[in-house]
Structure formats: C-alpha cells, structure tokens
Design a protein around this nucleic acid. Structure first.
Lengths: 141, 141
DNA sequence: CAGATGTTTCATGTTGTCAAGTAACTGGGT
DNA sequence: ACCCAGTTACTTGACAACATGAAACATCTG
C-alpha cells in the first residue's frame, strides 16, 4: 500500500519542502518589516491587484469568511484598506486598498526577494526549463 | 530602485508561489486527517526522526520556546509524545514520540502525497533536471 | 557566587473554526 | 405585480490553537 518512491523523487520532494520553508520564512519576514502579519500581507497583496468582495478573499485564502472580517478589520483600522459598497449588490462589501495600502503593497512586493535573487544564478534556458517543469508538475500545461 | 524582473523570472516566482500554496494545503489536510494541526504534525514529524530538547524544536520551527511548550503539551495530552529528562543536563526536557506517536508520524508521512503524484508525470530525466535546478536555486550545490 | 541557559507560566494579540443572526437577493406560485 | 421561502453575503460571539514577550524558576558554567 505504501507508494514506492524512488530516491530521486524523494530528493525532489525534500528540495521542494526546503523551497517552501524558505519561501515562508522570507514572506513572513518581509511582512514583519512593514508591521504586517503574513495573513494581512497576503490579503493586501490580493487586493492590490483588484478590489474584491470579502467572500472572494475567503475563497482565495481557503478560510471561512468570518475570519476575513477580522483581518480586513485590522487592515482597515490601519488605513491600508477600506470597505466600499458594491453598487450591484447591497449585501456585498468590496475591500479595496487605500493609496497608502497600495504603496505598502508595492514596497512589500519589492522586498520579496525570494527566488528572484536565486534565480538570477540560472541562465535563461535553465529558467525556461524550470518554468516548464513546474508547470507540468502543477498540471498548468 | 525597483529590481528589474523579466517576465520569465516573474512567472517562475509565481509558479513557486503556487507550489508553496498547494504544498501547504495538502500538508494541513493530511494533518487534519489525523486530527492534528499543522504545527503539531510538524513537531511530531521532527521528533520521529530523533527526540530533541524543546529549545531545538523552537529553533527548527523558528519560533519562541514558550510556544513549543504548548504544542508539546497538546501532543503529550494525546499520548503521542512524552517528555523525558536529559541525563546530561537536568534543565533540559527531551521530547520523544511514544510508540503511538511514531505510528501516527509514519501514517502521516505516507498520506503526504504532494509532489509524489505530480512528479510521476515527469520522466526520470526531467526529475533529474528539476532536482538539479532546485539544488542550484537553493545554493545546495 | 554571578551570569547564562532551558523550560514554564502569564498576559496579550492574531488566526482559524463553527453557529447564529441580520440584511439583501432570487425564483417560484398565485 | 406581489409575497414568501430559500439562498447568499457579511458580521458577531464563543472558543481553540498559535505566536510573542516578560517574568519566574531551576540548573549549568566559569
């Protein structure tokens, strides 16, 4: 019943685990530099692309909507995000970044060095190859 | 000031973000199947390799030692882990998995499908290539 | 003995779930 | 057109887990 996993696959899995760990570390660190928690940074990053209803944020974060209420509350209290009515549906509240929120999101993105610097060590051909392999792994092809 | 990032690199970074998200999802899901939280599963996994002092667990998890106290408390309350004195230093408590804890850890590892199934779609040459690229990215070479 | 180290406890804040409540939309049936 | 039942969006409240920081305690080290 135990799936047979050859050493090569195991090594790749372990490498991915390391990538995941490092990515998280750097993400939290970058968020902390802007006095944000990881969850707050993720939401702000989402909203900086486009405003969206609370419900949609919850779907993206894969958590309960009631949880999003609190996170947006805290972002709103700090003036980084605001709630707007949705003209098409009065039940809906659209969360949108303020100007300051947009600025913070941009600075946050820039301080997210991960994978950008390490990737610089790879040639363009290698990066293309890495992209294709990751795509296939994720079934994004 | 903004580091120039070509579209290819950006895409790779985004793909890695997706990998990270999916990895976490599956990890939490696998943990939940055994009625564990993510943090508890991580600690149990750590200890299943070898017992270690609380302090070391905190270093591995990159959190405060006082946090580990609570996580190990909950694992101990469920009979998955026990605290033993360290014969060499009476201040230290070694956390070690019980037999049941070892079993749970093993079942947990087996239910961690991530990357194993997706990787099956790659040929051996491709997996080797992916391994080498990840190694170089991580500076593990 | 003085200082450093390992663990716990306490206070506090954030994230997460679930259940209940309110407001607003939707699709019948009359 | 109207109303009503059911659904959907969001919030609130209770509660558990996770996380930090400060303070307490026992123990080690020089």
């Amino acid at each position: 019943m135990v799936p047979r996993t050859d050493p090569l696959t195991l090594e790749v899995v372990e490498l991915i685990g390391t990538v995941v760990a490092r990515y998280h570390e750097e993400y939290e660190e970058a968020a902390a530099e802007h006095s944000l928690t990881g969850a707050q940074a993720r939401v702000l990053g989402l909203l900086s692309h486009e405003p969206m209803p609370m419900r949609r944020i919850a779907q993206r974060l894969k958590c309960e909507p009631s949880n999003v209420t609190g996170i947006v509350d805290r972002l709103e209290a700090r003036g980084l995000v605001e709630r707007r009515p949705d003209p098409a549906d009065r039940r809906v509240k659209l969360a949108a970044p303020t100007d300051e929120g947009r600025g913070t999101a941009a600075r946050l993105r820039d301080s997210l060095h991960f994978a950008r610097e390490p990737l610089a060590g790879l040639s363009e051909a290698e990066r293309t190859s890495l992209r294709d392999l990751l795509r296939r792994m994720l079934g994004t092809d």
